[in-house]
Measured scan of single mutants.
Amino acid sequence: HRQALGERLYPRVQAMQPAFASKITGMLLELSPAQLLLLLASEDSLRARVDEAMELII
C-alpha cells in the first residue's frame, strides 16, 4: 500500500524538487496513509510538506 502511494507521490514531488525527489518522497512516506492520501488530493498541502522537507534537508 505504501509502495503504491510512493509511486503516485514521487512524480509530483519530482516536479517540485527534482534533485531531492527520492529523499523527500521517502520522508513523506513516514506519514500515515491517511495523511498521504490528503497530500495526493491537495497540491497545496503537498507543496507545503515538500517545502518543510527541503528546510530539513538544507
Rank of each mutant, 00 (worst) to 15 (best):
H1K: 11
H1N: 14
R2F: 04
R2A: 13
R2W: 05
R2C: 11
R2I: 15
R2V: 15
R2G: 11
Q3A: 12
Q3Y: 02
Q3D: 14
Q3S: 09
Q3K: 12
A4P: 08
A4N: 08
A4E: 15
A4I: 14
A4R: 09
A4Y: 07
A4L: 09
L5C: 05
L5W: 08
G6S: 13
G6N: 09
G6A: 15
G6H: 14
G6V: 15
G6F: 15
E7H: 06
E7Y: 03
E7T: 08
E7G: 05
E7Q: 09
R8S: 13
R8W: 13
R8F: 14
L9Q: 01
L9T: 02
L9W: 02
Y10I: 04
Y10W: 10
Y10G: 05
P11I: 13
P11Q: 14
P11W: 08
P11L: 08
P11E: 14
R12S: 06
R12D: 03
R12G: 05
V13T: 01
V13C: 04
V13L: 05
V13H: 01
V13I: 14
V13R: 01
V13N: 01
Q14Y: 13
Q14E: 15
Q14H: 12
Q14N: 11
A15H: 09
A15K: 07
A15E: 14
A15S: 08
A15R: 08
A15C: 06
A15Y: 05
M16F: 06
M16Y: 13
Q17V: 13
Q17S: 10
P18A: 04
P18G: 05
P18S: 04
P18N: 04
A19C: 07
A19Q: 12
F20I: 03
F20H: 12
F20Y: 14
F20S: 03
F20R: 02
F20K: 03
F20V: 03
A21C: 02
A21L: 01
A21G: 05
S22P: 07
S22T: 12
S22L: 10
K23L: 12
K23S: 08
K23Q: 13
K23R: 14
K23E: 14
K23I: 15
K23F: 08
I24R: 00
I24C: 02
I24Q: 00
I24Y: 00
I24N: 00
T25H: 05
T25C: 07
T25N: 03
T25A: 05
T25V: 15
T25S: 04
T25W: 07
T25K: 02
G26L: 14
G26D: 15
G26S: 15
G26E: 15
M27D: 02
M27Q: 04
M27N: 01
M27R: 03
M27G: 01
M27K: 04
L28M: 04
L28E: 00
L28V: 01
L29P: 00
L29A: 04
L29S: 04
E30Q: 09
E30A: 09
E30V: 06
E30R: 07
L31W: 04
L31E: 06
L31H: 05
L31R: 03
S32Q: 10
S32L: 07
S32N: 09
S32E: 13
P33R: 09
P33T: 12
P33W: 12
P33V: 14
P33D: 15
P33M: 15
P33L: 13
A34K: 11
A34V: 10
A34L: 10
A34F: 08
A34C: 06
A34G: 10
Q35A: 13
Q35E: 14
Q35T: 10
Q35R: 05
Q35Y: 13
Q35H: 09
Q35I: 14
Q35S: 08
L36A: 02
L36P: 00
L36M: 05
L36N: 01
L36K: 01
L36F: 02
L36H: 02
L37W: 08
L37K: 09
L37M: 10
L37P: 03
L38R: 09
L38F: 10
L38W: 08
L38E: 15
L38Q: 15
L39W: 02
L39G: 01
L39Q: 00
L39R: 00
L39S: 03
L39N: 01
L40G: 01
L40H: 01
L40R: 00
L40P: 00
L40A: 03
A41C: 07
A41E: 12
A41M: 14
A41K: 10
S42C: 06
S42Y: 08
S42T: 06
S42K: 06
E43G: 05
D44F: 03
D44A: 11
D44G: 08
D44I: 09
D44M: 06
S45K: 14
S45N: 12
S45C: 07
S45H: 13
S45P: 02
S45Q: 14
S45Y: 14
L46Y: 00
L46W: 01
L46N: 00
L46F: 07
R47S: 06
R47V: 06
R47K: 10
R47G: 04
R47E: 04
R47M: 06
A48L: 12
A48P: 03
A48R: 14
A48H: 08
A48D: 07
A48E: 11
A48T: 09
A48V: 11
A48S: 10
R49P: 01
R49Y: 15
R49I: 10
R49Q: 11
R49W: 14
R49K: 12
R49S: 11
R49H: 11
R49A: 15
R49T: 10
V50N: 00
V50E: 02
V50H: 00
V50I: 10
V50D: 00
V50Q: 00
D51V: 11
D51S: 10
D51T: 11
E52A: 11
E52V: 07
A53V: 11
A53Y: 14
A53D: 01
A53I: 15
M54E: 01
M54V: 09
M54N: 02
M54T: 06
M54S: 03
E55W: 10
E55D: 11
E55N: 12
E55I: 10
E55M: 12
L56R: 13
L56T: 12
L56W: 09
L56G: 06
I57M: 06
I57N: 01
I57C: 04
I57S: 01
I58T: 09
I58L: 15
